[in-house]
Write a protein that binds this DNA or RNA. Structure first.
Ligand SMILES: [Mn+2]
Ligand SMILES: [Mn+2]
Ligand SMILES: [Zn+2]
Ligand SMILES: [Zn+2]
Lengths: 137, 137
DNA sequence: ATCTCTCTTTAGAATAGATCTAGTTTGAGA
DNA sequence: TCTCAAACTAGATCTATTCTAAAGAGAGAT
């Protein structure tokens, strides 16, 4: 796991306590938090980050490519510091959103695609279903 | 293309001029309209559908499965009357959202997936890139 | 050490998409 | 024709996000 300071510096962003804390939190969670969940978590112990700064920072990190927006639920915007190619699974019962390994689906970027999409920037598979935990209850 | 009246009736929904018009419009467009675009189009000639009714109707149609929500852009909620399995392509330059044929990616629902997702309800591939039109300009 | 300039943070106002409310209209069935 | 539940409506409300304008912070210059 790369140090947040290094990542921020590489992108030419000043290292501030708020940016450091937000990026570090996103790096260490797997829940793909919403902006509200980021605010909640950061200010749980010691309030030090305003609502506006969380939104500003998330947008800044997204602009420089350090986090990705995950937009597969109506009205819910999540953030993901895992920027390696991967897929997502959403449980329709509990709402959990999990990573799926990139290699799970083989090579998706093949010839036939270029008819409609000559330049591919990103491919992602979204799987909706019921997770193991929800199935067994 | 199935008649909207028949689809509504099958789902036990009353056939109203508003529901008929909204479903018919969605059936005949390929742009995956937002709620605002539905309102705009329906009231272009003869205003007859309120904002609240468009939202109510879209939610009703979604609840009975006659339309799907398409939620792949931050803050943008689109509607799709094509409920056959298919994938989507989004052009990062012009924002166009197009259907991709289901058969384009072969069988995605294979054994390895069931480890994390024992019950699969839906699989969809999202491709982001540059469309032919935007590439050639 | 002080100044300066730019970037960052902040509280609160504003915006916009979606939902809710309460009253009205509609039409199928008695 | 009457009744009643479902559907429609205008406008109020809600809520996630963005905007605004002012304060803070820090790197380099003097
Ligand atoms: Mn992820
Ligand atoms: Mn579609
Ligand atoms: Zn679950
Ligand atoms: Zn394009």
């Amino acid at each position: 796991m790369v140090d947040p300071s290094m990542l921020l510096e590489r992108k030419g962003l000043k290292i501030t306590p708020q940016r450091y804390a937000i990026l570090k939190f996103l790096q260490h969670t797997t829940i793909h938090p919403t902006a509200d969940e980021v605010i909640e978590q950061l200010n749980r112990d010691l309030p030090m980050t305003s609502r506006a700064t969380v939104y500003n920072t998330l947008n800044t990190l997204r602009d420089v490519g350090l986090v990705h927006e995950v937009t597969h639920e109506a009205g819910v915007l999540r953030y993901d510091a895992n920027i390696d190619p991967h897929h997502h699974f959403i449980c329709s019962q509990c709402g959990k959103l999990e990573d799926l390994d990139w290699k799970l689906f083989g090579n998706l970027n093949h010839e036939a695609l270029s008819a409609q999409c000559p330049v591919v920037e990103n491919i992602e598979v979204i799987v909706r279903g019921v997770c193991r935990h929800c199935r067994n209850r």
